[in-house]
Design a protein around this nucleic acid. Structure first.
Length: 414
RNA sequence: GGAGGCGUCGCAUAGUGGACUAGUGCGGUCGUCUUGAAAACGACUACCGAGGAAACUCGGUCGCAGGUUCGAAUCCUGCCGCCUCCGCCA
């Protein structure tokens, strides 16, 4: 595991790092970190010195001295290893710095709606929720999903299945036109890629399904596999930015999530997602983040689904992000807005942990990485079914999507 | 799933316990020569860490992690990956 923030930067700006972490709601002990860092560096010097002596003794074929140095080295190396462990334990807890222009706030209640596109749709009848609609139309089947895989799993059937495929195809085409390279990623990844992207694959809070007797987990987002794509690589300046449109299934435990807002497709254990992921030069990442947000907006505008843009405040950024925006679509079934996309600028946080760099002139630097949801099929289906429903329970298909579905309407069966 | 082989610097290859301070070729960069270019010749050509204002010094890295040894690219164990053959199978 590599460092999260540059330790040299932390040494030089301890107050700033502490304050920025506090804005995110992280209580970090910088003094302890710096103390451990100092001890660690002292031990490195000592170990290097003994190794240097060992080398000389070996060259002189001095067995007696060599044996003695070997013992000494072992002791010092053990101390150093302990110091390293302690150091990494502390430094990995330090969150990425929020951007200087990030919205300050303590939790999600202080997030801010920065834009709204379209109006919360009004119906001249009482709108049904997607679960009622989908079940009645025989396109969505949670009952058999539960029978076969458990609560939170579902079957998409008939026009439902075709709708998901159409959304994926539309999404991928949409991104290809914007210069993204389409990629189908593995749906499983080794634990180090979860850690590298800033997710915890194990532990009580973990969202990830791990495969028993292995180091593999089912991915919760293609962000993990798309970041893994260039792990341990040094890219060249001329192939940046790299933009990927990743297609994958996503698996989430969602343990402890209940309530009316978790109903139906809103919170499920498996869904399909088209994810955008960008590697770029540090100077470009703000611009790229805006592009990701604009792309998400354009996509949902094209589907004519009402949405609003929410800027996350520092308390809701998580460890990885320096800045983050969500799109929330109008969901008539619940009569409220619900999250459908999220885009983060993770600056060099993931790049440091996964060692993804690029050559800039003579020097080698960490890239910046960004991610954004183009579209998760489950929640997009909610928005389409609920916003496009007619009084008789039939569903109109958004115009932009008709070319991909091959039908313009799901006829009522009510 | 079974058997065997392999993993060395951007690429190709040498190296099988101490002179490896990892050699050589190709590629690349710079220079000399040239009106210009080519050729030829010469130099340089990986990454990480610690110290230092810097020049630089020291340490580590031969797929990854351990081990044996005064000393490991080289020997041993585990893991990862690749190749060949067999079996099975969409």
């Amino acid at each position: 595991m590599r460092v999260v923030l540059d330790i040299k930067f932390i040494r030089q700006n301890p107050k700033l790092v502490e304050e920025k972490a506090k804005q995110k709601g992280y209580d970090v002990d910088i003094d302890k970190l710096l103390k451990v860092d100092e001890d660690r560096r002292k031990l490195i010097e000592e170990v290097d010195k003994v190794r240097s002596e060992r080398k000389k003794a070996a060259e002189a074929r001095d067995e007696k001295k060599g044996q003695q140095l070997k013992k000494e080295l072992k002791e010092k190396e053990n101390l150093l290893e302990k110091a390293h462990e302690e150091f990494y334990l502390l430094i990995r807890e330090i969150p990425n710095l929020a951007a200087d222009d990030a919205l300050i706030g303590k939790d999600e209640s202080e997030n801010k709606v920065v834009k709204q596109v379209g109006q919360a749709k009004k119906f001249d009848f009482h709108p049904r929720d997607h679960l009622q609609l989908g079940t009645a139309l025989d396109i969505l089947d949670f009952e058999n999903g539960a029978k076969v895989a458990g609560s939170g799993f579902y079957y998409l059937k008939n026009e439902g299945a075709r709708l998901e495929l159409a959304l994926v195809n539309y999404g991928i085409d949409f991104l290809i036109k914007k210069g993204f390279a389409p990629v189908i990623t593995p749906d499983l990844a080794r634990a180090k890629f979860y850690e590298g992207t800033g997710y915890l694959p194990r532990g009580p809070e973990a969202q990830t399904y791990m495969i028993a007797d292995s180091d593999l987990g089912l991915i919760a987002t293609a962000e993990v596999t798309l970041a893994g794509l260039h792990t341990e690589e040094t890219l060249s300046e001329k192939d940046l930015p790299r933009k990927y449109a990743g297609y994958s299934h996503c698996f989430r435990k969602e343990s402890g999530s209940y309530g009316k807002y978790s109903k139906g497709l809103y919170r499920v254990h498996q869904f399909t997602k088209v994810e955008m992921y960008i590697y770029c030069q540090p100077d470009d990442s703000n611009k790229m983040h805006q592009e990701l947000l604009e792309t998400e907006k354009e996509f949902f505008s094209s589907l004519e689904i009402p949405y609003r843009v929410v800027e996350m405040c520092t308390g809701d950024l998580g460890s990885q992000a320096s800045k983050k925006f969500d799109l929330e679509a109008w969901m008539p079934g619940r009569g409220d807005w619900g999250e459908i996309t999220s885009t983060s600028n993770t600056t060099d946080y993931q790049a440091r942990r996964l060692n993804i760099r690029y050559k800039k002139g003579n020097s080698t630097e960490y890239v910046h990485t960004l991610n954004g949801t183009l579209m998760a099929t489950s929640r997009t289906l909610i928005a389409i079914l609920e916003n496009y429903q007619a009084k008789d329970g039939s569903i109109l298909i958004p115009k932009a999507l008709q070319k991909y579905t091959g039908f313009a309407k799901i006829p009522s069966k009510i």
